[in-house]
């Protein structure tokens, strides 16, 4: 993983004072600005669409964000463990395809007459297997993650086509009905799933020694290796965890769509956007699980608000694009490319 050394100069070089202040300002503007922007979005929609700020609608948005949120958390784990260099750092492009294949495996098993006791492990195992393939490609063969997971993405998408013949496979079980129903306070069960999953993932990544090692490996691979951390094993683990998230998201998606449908690949861009955006919602401008939840909800609220205001949702993609540009520009500035 020596390529990750490229991310080092950002922290390694001292830089002169003016540059330091510039960076600090950029970081401050980004952090404060992003929270302000989030608040502004909420206020704007609450004022212009009275229905927006109701418990029912917020619950719906949380539920609608569950699939994206779980995938984005998977990607966040990979980015933390692989370093946030957009080109050479950790990335898992196979996540959306993973969701598609896991959902297809689940739905196919159900429609073949197997119960949830087979289909759930089947979907999760599919996700984990994809994660293992990614891990081998990246850690054992040393392929740049961007390319390795791109190749795996194509293989996985192809397998989904073979399995489903590019058709909709419907599935309904008691478990799926519970997942797609509404829970306490008339909030979708998927919303609770997202919150619980975020809390669990956040606890592991932000508050355990394992999580700390994950950050260490991502930010300072050489130092981590020197300190005796099993760098390769931790990086491999991050891809497997991400694969598991893909499998889990697959199950949620079967519940949401009453089966597996085509077009899972369209999820890729929103997942990458969400995970990259998570950076601006953290104090030190690093990817965090909590930040990912916030950026998932930002994307969810934007889509929902536009829907309520009857504005074309294609605008959401445009806004996502602008957000990415801002984030990448500001983080580059903050990491001080000029100082290298």
């Amino acid at each position: 993983m020596s390529s990750d050394i490229d991310t080092l100069p950002a922290y390694g070089s001292g830089g002169d004072t003016t540059k330091g202040i510039g960076r600090w300002l950029a970081g401050f503007a980004l952090r404060g600005g992003s929270l302000l922007a989030f608040a502004a979005v909420l206020t704007f929609f609450s004022v212009s669409a009275p229905f927006f700020f109701t418990l029912g609608n917020i619950g719906n948005v949380l539920g609608q964000s569950a699939i994206l949120g779980v995938l984005a958390i998977g990607l966040t784990i990979v980015i933390i463990g692989g370093g946030s260099n957009v080109v050479k750092g950790g990335i898992d492009l196979s996540l959306a395809a993973n969701l598609g294949l896991s959902a297809a495996v689940y739905a196919t098993l159900i429609s073949a007459g197997y119960g949830d006791s087979v289909a759930i492990p089947g979907a999760l195992a599919t996700g984990v297997l994809i994660g293992i393939v990614n891990a081998i490609a990246v850690v054992v063969f040393g392929i740049v993650p961007l390319l390795a997971t791109l190749a795996v993405m194509n293989v996985v998408a192809g397998l989904e086509l073979v399995l489903t013949q590019n058709t909709v496979v419907s599935a309904s079980t008691d478990f799926l009905s519970v997942l797609s129903s509404y829970g306490p306070f008339d909030i979708p069960v998927l919303a609770y799933v997202l919150v619980i999953f975020t809390v669990l993932a956040g606890a592991v990544v932000q508050f355990t020694p394992l999580g700390l090692r994950l950050y260490a490996v991502g930010e300072f691979p050489e130092a981590a290796r020197a300190a005796g951390l099993p760098v390769r094993r931790i990086v491999a683990g991050s891809y497997i965890a991400s694969g598991l998230c893909g499998g889990l998201a697959g199950i949620l998606s079967v519940a949401y769509l009453s089966g597996s449908t085509t077009g899972a690949g369209e999820m890729l861009l929103p997942v990458v956007v969400t995970a990259l955006l998570s950076v601006v919602f953290s104090r030190r401008l690093v990817p965090t699980i909590g930040g990912t939840l916030l950026s998932t909800l930002l994307v969810g609220f934007l889509t929902n608000g536009f829907q309520l205001l009857n504005i074309s949702s294609t605008l959401v993609s445009g806004i996502q694009g602008v957000l990415i540009l801002l984030v990448v520009a500001a983080t580059s500035l903050q990491h001080g490319k000029g100082a290298v």
Binding site: Q64, I67, V168, L257, T261
Partner: peptide, 29 residues
């Protein structure tokens, strides 16, 4: 996009309109 379709139906239902008209779509979804 089926995911979008389900979200939009959810949001429309929550707005309690006087009527809902669905144009096409995969039946099981």
């Amino acid at each position: 996009n089926d995911t979008k379709l389900v979200s939009q139906l959810q949001t429309l239902i929550a707005q309690k309109p006087d009527a809902l008209v669905q144009l096409l779509g995969t039946l099981t979804v």
